[in-house]
């Protein structure tokens, strides 16, 4: 039986984000929160493995109490145990503090119910796009990491070897790793399953276990949240827009004139 840990994050849907043009700050009202799309791939892959090899899926997330809804979504994917790490003291964490908070919780869970075989993370979260937390947690757990996993090939439960494809700069690496291993999951690895009705019902009523800075994990306070974060935001601003160039309208300017102008520009850059 496979023991799978999935780490997910609830994020604002960045494709719909608006900025207050006067203050340069994020307009938070009305922005839907979603489960990070790459984490959905991780959940889908966990579900695929559970259905094909048998196993237990534990899902953790760190965030405000509303992140509970993402954990409920995880239950629809077959999560057996859901845990919400929530505390004001966790807030403001950068990737170093986040990987500490998650890794200590994972170590606690392992001490309680035995080691995990696979740790699945999304390739990155779409709000920060850093892709740093997965490798950070792997280092803290002292397990190998494969980032940008795009395809699953085989899993040999007896030899405890998994074979996957990783996207690299110049192509696809076919990699074998001995369990336990941490994978960050990228597009193509797995598709969301159709959730059976009983799971959807179960999800509606699911309540996560709550972990805080006070327990059950024994955290070093100075490593949590803003205090435990080496990086600080010094300034936030809206990006400057480059000065507008020339605008011509094809309904009022002859096509030939516009084409000639483009050709001249291409010549000026040595393209023609």
């Amino acid at each position: 039986m496979l023991r799978i840990l999935v780490s997910i994050k609830q994020v604002p849907d960045t494709t719909n984000i608006r900025i207050n043009p006067e203050t340069g700050t994020l307009i938070r009202e009305g922005i839907p929160s979603i489960t990070n799309p790459y984490d959905i791939i991780a959940l889908s892959f966990a579900c695929y493995l559970k259905n094909n090899y048998g196993g237990k899926i534990t899902v953790i997330t760190m965030g405000p109490p509303q992140a509970k809804s993402s954990l409920r979504e995880a239950v629809e994917f077959g999560a057996d145990r859901i845990i919400l790490l929530t505390d004001r003291k966790f807030a403001g964490a950068d990737t170093l503090a986040t990987s500490y908070t998650l890794a200590e919780a994972i170590k606690y869970l392992q001490a309680e119910e035995g080691p995990f075989d696979l740790y699945l993370f999304g390739k990155q979260a779409i709000d920060g796009d850093t892709a740093q937390v997965g490798p950070g947690v792997a280092v803290r757990l002292q397990v190998p990491v494969i980032t940008q996993t795009v395809k699953f090939e085989t899993l040999d439960l007896e030899k405890r070897i998994i074979r996957v494809h990783r996207k690299s700069e110049n192509g696809i690496e076919i990699l074998e790793a001995k369990l336990p291993v941490l994978l960050t999951c990228d597009k193509g690895l797995a598709e969301p399953p159709f959730s059976p009705f009983p799971l959807i019902l179960k999800a509606v009523k699911a309540e996560p276990e709550i972990f805080t800075a006070d327990g059950p994990v024994n955290y070093q306070r100075e490593k949590l949240g803003l205090r435990g974060s080496p990086t600080q935001v010094k300034k936030v601003y809206t990006p400057e827009v480059k000065k507008k160039g020339k605008i011509v309208d094809l309904s009022t300017t002859p096509l030939k004139k516009v084409v000639d102008e483009v050709i001249e520009l291409l010549k000026s850059k040595g393209i023609l």
């Binding site: 990737t95 170093l96 796009d129 850093t130 892709a131 997965g134 490798p135 280092v139 700069e169 990086t231």
Partner: peptide, 23 residues
């Protein structure tokens, strides 16, 4: 910030317990 660099940076920052800013 390539597939290799991103993979490496997060782990090294953790080993060195220092801050890392992406992209």
């Amino acid at each position: 910030a390539t597939p290799l660099g991103r993979d490496l940076a997060g782990g090294v920052a953790t080993l060195l317990e220092t801050g890392l800013t992406a992209d």
